[in-house]
């Protein structure tokens, strides 16, 4: 078991475990945030596993999750809109999501350095960019109700 696999195991225990708890309990808004966080973390776990098992082909798993994960979150944001608008995520949650979306790409960087130039590096960079954009946007979509309400109060 090498360092990459240890990192993946740590991320599973400290990240995905709590996210599962968050998605299984509490109000809807917390569950949606937890689910979004879980897709982000599992995407990183996939990349770490690809490096740990020395199988560049496994990067495709992360690539697919980096586009479908935010799409899934947008599905919840769209179809649970009324429940999210009734109890919108607090500003703290929205901030945490933005922080995470900015924090994710640097986690891809060490993988990029180890991979070296080539097709895998290009994929990793694309995944990093997609994760950043996707999580910023899904954070915004979840807080969408809050934004709108504030706008109407102001106006």
């Amino acid at each position: 078991m090498n360092g990459w696999l240890v990192a993946a195991a740590t991320l599973l225990v400290l990240g995905v475990g709590p996210a599962l708890w968050g998605a299984a309990t509490g109000p809807v808004r917390r569950r949606v945030v937890a689910q979004n966080l879980a897709t982000l973390l599992v995407c990183l776990v996939m990349l770490l596993l690809a490096q740990g098992y020395a199988r560049p082909a496994y990067i495709d798993l992360g690539l697919v999750l980096s586009v479908l994960g935010p799409a899934g979150t947008l599905v919840y944001a769209r179809l649970l809109a009324d429940e999210l608008a009734a109890v919108p995520p607090t500003a703290r949650v929205a901030r945490a999501m933005t922080t995470l979306s900015v924090a994710a790409p640097p986690l891809v960087l060490p993988l990029c350095v180890v991979t070296g130039p080539g097709r895998s590096l290009a994929k990793l960079l694309v995944i990093g960019a997609l994760l950043m954009a996707g999580n910023t946007v899904s954070g915004r979509a979840m807080a969408g109700g809050a934004h709108l309400q504030r706008e109407t109060h102001d106006g």
Binding site: R31, A38, M46, L61
Partner: peptide, 23 residues
Amino acid sequence: RQALVLALLGLALAVVFTVLQSP
């Protein structure tokens, strides 16, 4: 709400399949 938990179940299954080397 179950749909949200099912999404996490799917992610966990994907991790199982990957660590069992069936990508």
